[in-house]
């Protein structure tokens, strides 16, 4: 049985956009029983990655100026999730909405798919985060521990 897969998405040189990738990197120390990878962009290869595990967790910065930076928005992919209503996630070349819609049509969505959006405001060039990394990291870590209970 394949291990659960965590995909951290982001660009380390665009401030808050790095959130997904930085948190995924640190999770490697705390979750030995997960496959954890980093991706700088969302691309069509995600459809192949979705086939490698029954459980996939996507970690990405969520551009959202109405929420406190560093807090989380969690979406569980299911038939009731209206993809067009997902908020805009990042500036990667193919949007998460598009890849999920395509995956849905091609029957490539894993049995369990969770999207953790990290509320972010600053996507300028740089390496500073507009939130307390440790605090957000703990939120993500604690949430992942609860995942077996939400399915």
């Amino acid at each position: 049985m394949s291990l659960p897969l965590i995909i951290g998405i982001g660009n380390e040189f665009r401030c808050d956009d790095a959130a997904g990738i930085l948190i995924a990197r640190k999770l490697k120390n705390d979750f030995q029983n997960f496959d954890i990878i980093e991706k700088t962009v969302i691309d069509l290869n995600f459809l192949d990655l979705f086939k490698t595990s029954n459980t996939v967790i996507l970690l990405d910065a969520l551009k959202n100026e109405n929420k406190e930076p560093g807090t989380l928005e969690v979406f569980v992919f299911n038939d009731n999730l209206v993809l067009n209503d997902l908020p805009y996630f990042s500036s990667h070349s193919i949007s998460l909405n598009e890849i999920l819609q395509l995956g849905k049509q091609l029957n490539c969505i894993p049995e369990k798919l969770i999207i953790i959006g990290i509320n972010s405001i600053n996507f300028q060039i740089g390496t500073e985060l507009s939130f307390n990394f440790e605090k957000t990291y703990q939120l993500v870590k604690e949430f992942i521990k609860t995942i077996p209970d939400i399915f």
């Binding site: 290869n45 819609q101 395509l102 091609l106």
Partner: peptide
């Protein structure tokens, strides 16, 4: 868009993605 094509012709889009890959 291609998402709509995938809805009606998933095999065509699957093969296209395999070819591109």
């Amino acid at each position: 868009d291609a998402i709509q094509i995938a809805k009606d012709y998933p095999e065509i889009v699957k093969d296209a993605l395999k070819l591109k890959k």
